[in-house]
Design a protein around this nucleic acid. Structure first.
Length: 836
RNA sequence: GCGGGCGUGGCGGAGUCGGCAGACGCGCGGCACUCAAAAUGCCGUGGGGGUAACCCCGGGUGGGUUCGAAUCCCACCGCCCGCACCA
């Protein structure tokens, strides 16, 4: 044993990695005869060196990619960096670093680790979103949206993060806090750029059914879109309302539209609620001290406080100085303003039905308002249940029922009443059916400066003018002062002053906001199709060949943000004629996290395990294989539970078995043992192939381990020569996508031509998989009492006969009566007995 | 509160069209090699009983369906994730 070379991964891996990089070994062949396969992993943000999370996702992704290549696919496997964003700017602010230099230094560091770990990206596709050659086209996409009417600027109550000094999209606010900095977000009225993602809400919802994504991600998107069907109904301000205003308000102001998903409950609307900031309320309550105090209190409260007030059930509101008329009952009902109605959903006003809505119920109880029963509960089948009692009920009733106290609708099941009332509302001109979504338009502008400038010029006479395509990119100046508070770009002394492209006015200024990083990443998978093309963002025929991405891998943290935006941008670009795909990513895999002792690894916790600690000791193959063997890709990996040392031991065994075989191939050995090993080889191929298809790399590795165990077992029984070589080569082929270095090195040492990674994926010899004899289990009353060996396809009679000859089975059949015999061919036989 | 998912050895996990529970590995114990250790290899390893053949128990808990349940159904317990006043 001492005469063969030991497995020394640190010696063999580096040179191979460097060669793959230098020779661009994995650059796309783009062979039209091969079936295309677009494999994409979420491109990294260059925050520093690669961490364990990157290593895991890349290890999963690379196993998939290398397997697909061996299967003969023309694999597009690009890599780039999501290189714009706030950390670079923060580094500039806190330590005076140049954001560009900081970013590129981090990219180089990550790149060298990626190369070292043997991930087979196509380096010719490399891009960075902060390069002018890239963001030129990000700006072009914004102008496409602008031209299509899908980008617009308006004032809105938006989320402002004081820490980041910028606005945020709704999707970036988690529990009232900034998803980046964790600062409490405040609501401010500001004029901002939005993308009209709500135009695509229905399609974004419907097309979820066409893509192969984890159900929970699809569910999260469905919930986020939040589609609901209901009606908009107009309520009039009641005549004789105690308005303190002179009766000069125009007619429009005397009507209020509400959105409701339960028009059927309108006879139970006993009061009315406006959002505190509702314009009609502002107008009619102007000068009212109580209202002003209320509005002031509400606007000062953060989202967090609003939520905590909902937890204790408290809702704050004030009675307004007018009533509204319920169009169906003709009754005047009191109007309130309350913080539980939101200005930016529906119409900012609701009809309150306390009997059927928990929030309305809570508020009614709190304010002593009438709760009117207009529904008689039923079960799912329409059978009547006990009547509700407004005085004693403790919560709203939201289940099925039939209408009562609802005029001509009495007796109708609630769904029928909903349809009938919507019909009548439309007939009488009081409103119409309406679909609403929770999804709001995507706020894309940011008051930061390490991002693509919004390519718009504001002209005093022409208004908002898109920068002409030939003037792109609108480049960032090199001399931004990041030490200022606020936006460095806006503070720059000269940059924003340009003549208007339309009229030439010298008073025009550039928009000084930048586009959010999620705009950069909403289309990068398209730029990968022709990253160096300076004529166009991508060729349409390439998009049609490669899209949608066949397999996308990445973290579930992007379940809504990035994935929703990319879907929207894809659909918008499709409608502009730039591509044909309806969806960007056909299949999605969310890998689990790498954690330590049950807690996420993070710098702040101080529990980071750096990849280099593993590959610096055991090599990249061990790091990669350890991650894949630990669990299925979707599951979290607790680094405290895994054993790189154990994986290294097995890889060393593969090395030793192969090098020992080379040193002394030996003879084939006894026929029966040769047959057994060849069968194990075929089983490993069949099993591992299925596992690769199911992306269960942990069990695929287990099958390779079983085969190496079989090789050692066979060796003890005198098997060497060709059968052993075949088994060992099989291990190398099956392992190549997971541990690319050791397999490459051993494949070469075995004297084979070419790279192991250029081989065809092995196919199992089907004739070796079929057996002519099977072991069957014999049960008595469902308990295993024996095993018998029988030819495959034995008849029931033969099986029963053989089963009863087993001594232990016979013993259990003694003194009892067999009442039934269950035979599952080639699997088991079960005698059902009872005492005689 | 609403929605979704998951509970299998000391550990990671296999097995889930109902049909041999615990593949594979880690850890642990024993043995071989060695002066010794490391490395490597071999044997064992869910719990209990038995010299053994074997027997009993065992899949979060409790029920149910079935010849047969980790797998299907119901209830409960625990954990994880998402959403959270969206009318």
């Amino acid at each position: 044993m001492s005469d063969v070379e030991r497995y020394d991964p640190l010696a063999i891996e580096g040179p191979i990695a460097q060669r793959w990089y230098d020779e661009r070994t994995y650059s796309l062949r783009s062979d039209p005869d091969r079936e295309p396969f677009y494999a994409l992993t979420m491109f990294p943000y260059p925050s520093g060196d690669l961490h364990m999370g990157h290593a895991e996702i890349f290890s999963i992704h690379d196993a998939l990619v290398r397997h697909k290549r061996m299967q003969g696919f023309d694999v597009l496997n690009p890599i780039g960096w999501d290189a714009f964003g706030l950390p670079a700017e923060n580094a500039a602010k806190s330590r005076g670093a140049d954001p560009r230099a900081w970013t590129y230094a981090n990219i180089e560091e990550q790149l060298s680790t990626i190369v070292r770990l043997g991930y087979s990206f196509d380096w010719s596709t490399r891009l960075h979103t902060c390069d002018p050659e890239y963001y030129r086209w990000t700006q072009w996409i914004f102008l496409e949206l602008l031209d299509a009417g899908l980008a617009y600027r308006r004032e809105a109550l938006v989320n402002w993060c004081p820490g980041c000094e910028t606005v945020l999209a709704n999707e970036q606010v988690i529990d009232g806090r900034c998803e980046r900095s964790d600062d409490v977000v405040v609501r401010k009225p500001l004029t901002q750029w939005f993308a009209r993602i709500t135009d695509y809400a229905d399609e974004l919802l419907a097309d979820l059914d066409t893509i192969d994504w984890p159900e929970r991600v699809k569910l999260m998107q469905r919930n986020w879109i939040g589609r609901s069907e209901g009606a908009e109904i107009t309520f009039k301000v009641a005549a004789g309302s105690s308005s303190t205003l002179p009766d000069t308000a125009d007619e429009q102001a005397d009507e209020v539209v509400v959105y409701t998903t339960r028009p059927d409950t309108i006879f139970g609307a006993t009061y009315f609620v406006f959002a505190p900031e509702h314009p009609l309320v502002r107008e009619r309550m102007a000068g009212d001290a109580d209202y002003d105090a209320f509005l002031d209190a509400v606007s000062k409260r953060s989202e967090i406080e609003r939520q905590s007030s909902s937890e204790d059930g408290g809702k704050r509101g004030v009675r307004l100085n007018f009533d509204l008329t319920n169009p169906f009952t003709g009754e005047a009902i009191p109007a309130y303003a309350a913080d539980y109605v939101l200005m930016d959903y529906g119409t900012g006003a609701i009809m309150a039905v306390p009997v059927g809505d928990q929030r309305d119920f809570d508020f009614a109880r709190q304010e002593g308002l009438e709760i009117r029963v207009i529904i008689r509960p039923t079960d799912e089948d329409g059978n009547l249940l006990d009547e509700l009692d407004a005085d004693t009920m403790t919560e709203a009733y939201t289940g099925p029922g039939v209408m009562v106290n609802s005029g001509e609708y009495d007796g109708l099941p609630y769904q029928d009443a909903k349809a009938a009332i919507i019909r009548d509302v439309e007939g009488k001109g009081w409103g119409s059916a309406k679909v609403n979504t929770r999804l709001r338009d995507w706020l894309v502008s940011r008051q930061r400066s390490w991002g693509p400038p919004v390519p718009v010029i504001h002209c005093p006479s022409c208004g908002e003018v898109g920068v002409p395509a030939e003037d792109l990119p609108v480049a960032l100046p090199d001399d931004l002062d990041f030490s200022v508070s606020g936006s460095p770009l806006a503070m720059h002394p000269t940059w924003k002053h340009v003549p208007c492209p339309a009229c030439g006015s010298e008073d025009a200024v550039r928009d000084t906001d930048t586009l959010d990083t999620f705009v950069d990443s909403s289309w990068y998978f398209l730029r990968f199709l022709s990253p160096n093309d300076d004529e166009r963002p991508w060729p349409k025929d390439a998009a049609d060949r490669w899209l949608p991405v066949d397999q996308y891998t990445g973290g579930v943290e992007h379940a809504i943000l990035h994935l929703l935006y990319a879907r929207f941008v894809t659909k918008a670009l499709r409608d502009r004629g730039h591509l044909s795909a309806d969806e960007p990513f056909q299949a999605l895999l969310n890998q689990g996290q790498v954690i330590l002792n049950g807690a996420g690894m993070s710098k702040s916790r101080g529990n980071l395990v750096a990849p280099v600690e593993v590959y610096g000791t055991y090599g990249a193959d061990t790091l990669r294989a350890t991650m894949l063997f630990a669990s299925p890709p979707e599951d979290d990996i607790d680094w405290a539970d895994v054993s790189p040392a154990g994986m290294h031991k097995w890889l060393s065994r593969v090395w030793r078995l192969t090098t020992e075989h080379l040193a002394d191939p030996g003879e084939d050995g006894p026929d029966a043992e040769v047959a057994a090993l060849r069968r194990e080889t075929a089983l490993a191929i069949a099993g591992a192939s299925d596992d690769y298809e199911a992306r269960k790399y942990n069990t695929a590795i287990a099958k390779m381990m079983t085969l190496t165990n079989a090789v050692m077992d066979a060796e003890r029984k005198g098997v060497g020569g060709a059968p052993r070589r075949e088994a060992l080569e099989t291990v190398l082929l099956l392992l190549a996508p997971i541990a690319p270095f050791i397999t490459e090195e051993l494949w070469r040492r075995l004297g084979n031509d070419g790279s192991v990674h250029a081989q065809r994926w092995p196919e199992a010899d089907a004739s070796l998989l079929v057996q002519d004899e099977v072991e069957m289990v014999v049960q008595v009353n469902g308990k295993v009492r024996g095993r018998i060996a029988l030819p495959v396809g034995s008849t029931q009679d033969a099986i029963e006969a053989a089963a009863t000859t087993d001594p232990n089975v016979a013993e259990h059949l003694e003194g009892v009566t067999v009442v039934k015999t269950i035979v599952v061919p080639d699997k088991l036989v079960n005698f059902v007995v009872r005492p005689a």
